[in-house]
């Protein structure tokens, strides 16, 4: 898979529910449609939560990685 280059990075490490999702919803508005937001989180619940948030808002979750206790999400702003 080709490397995804994010347009912006949101560091939500150390934050607990619901802040990773809340901050993602605020940050996605600062990038253009079609651009990619990278979200870093340590909350294990964010795996299910960011996925649910993407499903509900219609933004596209391009990829999700886990490594060293950090979850990394690549979200493409669709609308």
């Amino acid at each position: 898979m080709a490397e995804i280059t994010p347009n912006k990075v949101l560091d939500a490490r150390g934050l607990q529910c619901p802040m990773p999702v809340v901050k993602t919803s605020q940050e996605i508005k600062t990038i253009g449609v079609g651009e990619v937001l990278q979200v870093l989180a340590t909350d294990p619940g964010s795996m299910a939560d960011i996925t649910a948030w993407c499903k509900s808002t219609g933004n596209e979750l391009l990829n999700m990685e886990k490594g060293g206790g950090v979850f990394t999400f690549y979200i493409k702003r669709v609308r």
Binding site: C17, P18, V21, V22, S25, A52, W53
Partner: peptide, 11 residues
């Protein structure tokens, strides 16, 4: 408040 902020964040 957690549910309210999350619901708002989810549009």
């Amino acid at each position: 408040f957690i549910i309210a902020t999350t619901a708002a964040a989810m549009g």
